[in-house]
Amino acid sequence: MESVWLGIDVGGTNVVMALGDGDGNAFVKKRIPTLAADGPARVLKRIIDAVETMLEETGTSFSRLGGIGLGVPGLVDAERGVVRLAVNLNWRQVAVSEVFRSHFGVPVRVDNDVRSAALGEYQFGAGKGFRHFLCLTLGTGIGSGMFLDGRLYAGATGSAGEIGHMVVEREGFPCTCGNRGCLETIASGPSLVRFVRERITEGVPTSLDNGEPLTVERIGSAFDVQDALAQEAIRRAGKYLGFALANAVHLLNVERVIIGGGVSLLGDRLFGFVRSEFQRCVLKGVGDGVDIVPAALGDEAGVMGALALARQAAGLPLDSPATA
Score class of each variant (00 low, 15 high):
residue 296 A to S: 07
residue 183 L to N: 08
residue 77 D to N: 01
residue 103 H to G: 01
residue 73 P to T: 05
residue 250 H to N: 12
residue 30 K to W: 11
residue 288 D to K: 11
residue 244 A to M: 06
residue 46 R to N: 12
residue 165 H to C: 15
residue 241 L to F: 11
residue 230 A to I: 08
residue 103 H to Y: 00
residue 163 I to Q: 04
residue 302 G to K: 01
residue 39 G to N: 11
residue 71 G to Y: 08
residue 9 D to Q: 10
residue 215 T to M: 01
residue 287 G to T: 08
residue 233 A to P: 00
residue 17 M to C: 10
residue 24 G to F: 09
residue 221 S to N: 15
residue 301 A to T: 00
residue 277 E to R: 05
residue 106 V to L: 07
residue 266 L to V: 09
residue 62 F to N: 14
residue 299 D to E: 07
residue 205 P to A: 14
residue 251 L to W: 10
residue 27 F to G: 12
residue 150 G to I: 13
residue 81 G to F: 00
residue 206 T to M: 08
residue 203 G to I: 09
residue 66 G to Q: 12
residue 143 G to V: 05
residue 195 F to W: 12
residue 263 V to M: 03
residue 287 G to Q: 10
residue 158 G to T: 14
residue 234 I to E: 05
residue 84 R to L: 07
residue 275 R to M: 06
residue 271 F to M: 09
residue 113 D to N: 06
residue 318 L to D: 09
residue 283 L to H: 13
residue 242 G to E: 10
residue 221 S to C: 10
residue 172 G to T: 13
residue 56 E to T: 11
residue 17 M to F: 07
residue 257 V to H: 02
residue 102 S to I: 03
residue 135 C to H: 01
residue 12 G to T: 07
residue 258 I to S: 04
residue 157 T to S: 11
residue 252 L to I: 10
residue 251 L to A: 14
residue 222 A to L: 05
residue 147 F to M: 12
residue 4 V to H: 00
residue 283 L to Y: 15
residue 283 L to I: 08
residue 232 E to S: 05
residue 223 F to T: 04
residue 46 R to Y: 10
residue 200 I to E: 06
residue 262 G to P: 03
residue 198 E to F: 07
residue 74 G to S: 09
residue 239 K to Q: 15
residue 314 A to S: 13
residue 43 V to W: 03
residue 36 A to K: 08
residue 150 G to W: 07
residue 291 D to G: 00
residue 167 V to G: 09
residue 201 T to N: 12
residue 224 D to A: 15
residue 302 G to P: 03
residue 271 F to N: 09
residue 29 K to E: 15
residue 186 I to Q: 08
residue 46 R to P: 00
residue 130 F to V: 12
residue 250 H to C: 15
residue 310 A to F: 03
residue 78 A to V: 02
residue 49 D to K: 12
residue 208 L to Y: 07
residue 40 P to I: 07
residue 15 V to M: 03
residue 269 R to E: 01
residue 208 L to P: 04
residue 260 G to P: 02
residue 123 Q to V: 13
residue 200 I to Y: 05
residue 80 R to K: 04
residue 154 A to Y: 13
residue 2 E to Y: 11
residue 276 S to Y: 00
residue 37 A to C: 03
residue 5 W to Q: 04
residue 152 L to F: 09
residue 48 I to T: 11
residue 130 F to D: 10
residue 163 I to M: 08
residue 289 G to D: 07
residue 205 P to T: 13
residue 244 A to D: 02
residue 83 V to F: 05
residue 217 E to I: 07
residue 256 R to H: 13
residue 79 E to C: 03
residue 74 G to P: 04
residue 14 N to K: 15
